[in-house]
Design a binder for these strands. Structure first.
Lengths: 163, 163
DNA sequence: CTCGATTAAATCGTGTGCGATACATATGTC
DNA sequence: GACATATGTATCGCACACGATTTAATCGAG
């Protein structure tokens, strides 16, 4: 084992940087197309969540897209102002706000999904690779979000070039 | 092939969302530790780039961390105001500004790298998995950033659940 | 039933990322 | 010398994202 004295970490070796920079690349790729639809990427994600299950509460949306209410509330208001979404207090529990897609919102979601489809063609991976990659990254995310999980046996000292 | 009518895209099936949410998870994990050091994550990345090669120009830093000068300039000024970095015009080519780590900046980088190391222990992947993952994601990023590359033979229609 | 604790949203302020645009300066080319 | 180009800088603007606080509604214990 070569002695690695001071700064053993190289930018291109870090898993977190790969994800950070890939996220930026996705944003750059999505932006011009989503701009035409008047959507931002997080807004698109929220529409997708509602497309799966309409009438989610703000908290439920947040659980899907990993955003808090302080981020979602203004975002949802923008979506509502644009007419893509309707916010309505739950009659049973008036603390909660239920969000539903409007017809135009649903149509917009269709267009946005087409954007994703077209973007998929640019990726330098096969479908099976993409699926494996997605699941691995999702697992990574979950292991980071877990408060203090019992790590699945990975020797921490072995992971010098991650993070 | 099953007919996939209107909204075949599920949030959890999308590769871009996995990356988006993993990036958020990394941010959440890094923030409390980097906060103690008075650094943001992109600032940390810039320090790392300078740790590899000191005296980079702004443009060179941008090439490393995939950020433009309009993002980097204010970031670098904050780093300079905090005393972690020195900006100096290149005497040979006065268009360029060369950025160098100060001693305190270099020390800070060490501490920040330790943060990454400790974080690596939380990841639910082996080292070999992490390396493969990192390379795959970096390849993804590069395929997205390429202007209009000849895609490596992936059937676009095969990639419905990516993007 | 009332009071206190808990929960869901909303709000406020701040920092930051990142794009668009405009502009100054230095370089290279004709 | 006049030109286009490249690069760094400054400004503006929007949208996140987080922390902390506030308000409203619900629930639970007494």
């Amino acid at each position: 084992m070569p002695d690695v004295p001071t700064s053993p970490l190289d930018l291109d070796q870090m898993l977190c940087f790969a994800i950070y920079s890939a996220n930026g690349a996705f944003n750059r790729a999505y932006r011009p197309m989503l701009d035409r639809l008047g959507l931002t990427y997080p807004q698109y994600l929220v529409l997708m969540a509602l497309g799966e299950t309409d009438g989610l509460t703000v908290g439920e949306i947040g659980a899907h897209v990993f955003l808090e209410s302080n981020t979602l509330t203004p975002l949802l208001k923008r979506l509502e102002a644009a007419g893509h979404v309707v916010r309505r207090r739950d009659t049973a529990d008036e603390r909660q706000v239920r969000v539903s897609l409007t017809d135009t919102g649903r149509a917009l979601l269709q267009d946005a999904c087409a954007v994703t489809q077209s973007l998929a063609g640019k990726l330098a991976v096969t479908q099976t690779q993409a699926i494996a990659l997605r699941d691995a990254i999702a697992g990574l995310r979950d292991s980071l979000d877990e408060p203090a999980s019992t790590k699945p046996s990975v020797a921490a000292s072995d992971l010098a070039r991650d993070g």
